[in-house]
Amino acid sequence: MARTQIKMPTKTLEQFAHLTTAMPEIADEAVTAGGRVVEERVRANLSGAIGSGTKGKSRSTGQLLGALGLSPAKVDRKGDHNVKVGFTENRRDGRPNALIANVLEYGKAGQTPRPFLRPARASSRRACLEAMKHVLQNRMKGR
Score class of each variant (00 low, 15 high):
residue 14 E to F: 06
residue 57 K to V: 13
residue 100 I to L: 15
residue 71 S to W: 04
residue 46 L to I: 11
residue 1 M to L: 10
residue 97 N to Y: 10
residue 116 F to L: 13
residue 79 G to M: 10
residue 105 E to F: 04
residue 130 E to N: 09
residue 1 M to I: 07
residue 95 R to L: 15
residue 129 L to C: 03
residue 93 D to Y: 10
residue 15 Q to N: 13
residue 110 G to Q: 13
residue 104 L to P: 03
residue 40 E to A: 13
residue 106 Y to E: 03
residue 112 T to Y: 08
residue 26 I to G: 01
residue 68 L to F: 06
residue 118 R to C: 06
residue 104 L to C: 07
residue 127 A to F: 01
residue 38 V to Q: 14
residue 132 M to P: 02
residue 97 N to H: 15
residue 87 F to Q: 02
residue 99 L to F: 13
residue 27 A to K: 02
residue 26 I to Q: 06
residue 14 E to C: 01
residue 113 P to A: 15
residue 16 F to P: 04
residue 139 R to P: 07
residue 47 S to P: 00
residue 90 N to H: 03
residue 112 T to V: 09
residue 27 A to H: 03
residue 23 M to L: 15
residue 125 R to I: 04
residue 111 Q to M: 12
residue 82 N to A: 07
residue 89 E to M: 02
residue 65 L to F: 03
residue 16 F to G: 05
residue 48 G to Q: 15
residue 85 V to P: 02
residue 135 V to S: 00
residue 3 R to K: 08
residue 125 R to T: 10
residue 61 T to D: 04
residue 54 T to F: 09
residue 130 E to Y: 08
residue 83 V to S: 07
residue 41 R to M: 10
residue 104 L to F: 05
residue 15 Q to T: 11
residue 39 E to P: 00
residue 30 A to R: 01
residue 6 I to S: 08
residue 23 M to C: 00
residue 49 A to S: 14
residue 140 M to L: 14
residue 21 T to K: 13
residue 109 A to L: 14
residue 138 N to R: 15
residue 9 P to I: 00
residue 18 H to T: 06
residue 15 Q to H: 11
residue 106 Y to N: 08
residue 111 Q to H: 06
residue 79 G to S: 05
residue 40 E to Q: 15
residue 112 T to N: 05
residue 36 R to G: 09
residue 133 K to T: 12
residue 34 G to A: 09
residue 130 E to F: 03
residue 52 S to L: 01
residue 95 R to F: 01
residue 41 R to Y: 00
residue 34 G to Q: 03
